[in-house]
Amino acid sequence: MTVVMSKHSGTASARLRADYMRIKRDPVPYVTAEPLPSNILEWHYVVEGPEESPYEGGYYHGKLVFPMEYPFRPPSIYMITPSGRFKTNTRLCLSISDFHPDTWNPAWSVATILTGLLSFMLEKSPTFGSIETTDYEKRQLSQQSLSFNLKDKVFTELFPEITEAIQNKLAQREQELAERAKALENGNPSERDASTNDSRKQNPDAAQMSALTNLLVVVGFAVFAWTVRYIVSTLSEEEG
């Protein structure tokens, strides 16, 4: 049958190619996506943890599996890197995923899916395939995500630029550790102090946070003491 129209062949792969061109021209913030060279129905994506979120600094790899009927039916969405938000290698139940074919809108595109996924990741609302963890755990996982992804062959092949960025980050991290260890050997008291706490060493953010908390407690106490003194003195003035 020669019904196939010139540039619109109306197949999933034709539409996915159009989606790909579109996403290259107009990228989704924080997300990179690439189809497998051997199968355009399987796309892999990487979410870079946005600033000021517990995912900051992390790289989250996952995949979208499209049905032959795309865009008339939605894809399945999987997360591969542990994030503390989603179970790994489990189909996620989102309004944009194949758990809800009856709310899927064919006018949505890969960009819509990835934007929806990111915003759902940043929320806390539960769904099938989501898990609950503390922000602290999420931050730890974000640190671990770097080396986790480098072990994944599909990841390193599809995302060479991100892989390089991760390698650079890890090298930098290692260098910092080495310098710290060296400083420790030289008996630098301040460095020694910082490295006595294991969790602080692993997570500089947490160390900063607890220093800040300590400071706030001291300041708060000072203000309190000052207020008490002020009230006592005013009271005694009144009495006098």
């Binding site: 049958m1 020669t2 019904v3 196939v4 129209m5 619109h8 062949s9 109306g10 197949t11 034709a14 008339f72 064919p106 006018a107």
Partner: peptide
């Protein structure tokens, strides 16, 4: 008849009417 029975084409037309 051919156009309306071609999966891709037919579904595209249906979606446009839905919009």
């Amino acid at each position: 008849e051919a156009v309306c029975n071609d999966g891709g084409t037919s579904d595209y037309l249906v979606v446009y009417l839905r919009l």
